[in-house]
Amino acid sequence: MANGGFPFQMPMLTKNNYDNLSIKMKALLGAQDVWDIVEKGFNEQDEALLSQCVKETLRESRKRDKKALFLIYQSVDEDTFEKISNATTTKEAWDKLQTCNKGVEQVKKICLQTLRGNFERLFMEESESILDYFYRVLAVVNQLKRNGEDVDEVKVMEKILRTLNPSFDFIVTNIEENKDLKTMTIEQLMGSLQAVVHCWMRNKKE
């Protein structure tokens, strides 16, 4: 039985998936009947002052809390574990995890908004080569992907064709009439554009 005796695959926290992991962990902890103790916590008390019935309830709460804490530990890497390892209850560990990652998520959202704006403002400069413009577009696209954006290659190719400088209008028309972008890759589009430009330049020289 994998995962420390639990017969299921533990979701793992990454740099980009806190929101999704939070949803999965709430479901998993709920299925293990310990989410309420993560959400609300419990009050530690001195057993010497308690009745036998309350002692048993307290011990059960401690046991459920440790079970929930163990499950959370299984879903984080060593660096994140260090951030929450000094928590004395699962609620405290969960709150710390949320505080750390919500800040990261907010930064990521701001970064994505900036990158989307950069992508929308991309236009080929007059003196820029096809190859240089492709590399400039792909640099922004790769940054979007690294920040968790799902980038549609067809939209990227449409963006490139739409923003080439006007001297390439005839090339764009030729590609749009004879090529299906849905069956092409960005690399194939770049190759087609370069081939047409090379042919065009050679004809001009002749």
Rank of each mutant, 00 (worst) to 15 (best):
G4K: 07
G5Q: 05
G5T: 01
F6C: 08
F8S: 05
Q9D: 14
Q9E: 14
M12R: 09
K15F: 05
N16S: 15
Y18W: 12
L21M: 13
I23D: 08
K24V: 06
K24W: 04
K24R: 15
L29D: 11
A31H: 09
D33N: 15
V34M: 10
W35N: 06
D36G: 09
D36W: 03
V38T: 08
G41S: 08
F42W: 15
L49W: 00
L49D: 03
S51N: 06
C53M: 05
C53K: 10
C53I: 10
C53Q: 09
K55H: 02
K55I: 14
K55C: 12
L58F: 04
K63W: 07
K63Q: 15
R64F: 00
D65C: 06
K67M: 11
A68K: 00
L69A: 09
L69V: 01
F70I: 05
L71I: 15
L71D: 07
Y73F: 12
Y73E: 08
Y73C: 12
Q74V: 02
S75I: 04
D77P: 07
T80W: 00
F81N: 04
I84E: 04
I84T: 05
N86E: 12
A87C: 14
T88V: 12
T88K: 13
T88F: 02
T89N: 11
T90Q: 03
E92V: 14
E92I: 10
A93G: 12
W94D: 11
D95S: 13
D95E: 14
K96T: 10
L97S: 10
Q98K: 15
T99D: 09
T99S: 11
N101G: 05
N101K: 12
K102L: 11
K102T: 10
G103S: 05
E105N: 15
Q106T: 15
Q106D: 12
I110R: 13
C111T: 14
T114L: 12
L115T: 07
R116K: 11
G117N: 11
E120C: 09
E120S: 13
F123A: 07
F123N: 11
E128C: 01
L131D: 13
L131I: 07
Y133F: 11
F134H: 09
Y135G: 03
R136Q: 12
L138C: 04
L138H: 04
A139C: 02
V140R: 08
V140P: 05
L144P: 02
R146W: 10
G148T: 05
D150E: 07
E153R: 09
E153M: 07
V156L: 10
M157T: 02
E158T: 02
I160P: 00
L161A: 04
L161W: 02
L164P: 00
P166Y: 13
S167P: 02
F168S: 01
D169I: 00
T173R: 02
T173N: 09
N174Y: 06
E177F: 07
D180W: 04
T183P: 03
Q188L: 08
L189N: 06
G191S: 13
Q194G: 10
A195D: 14
A195I: 04
V196M: 11
C199T: 15
W200E: 09
W200R: 15
R202C: 03
K205F: 01
E206Y: 04
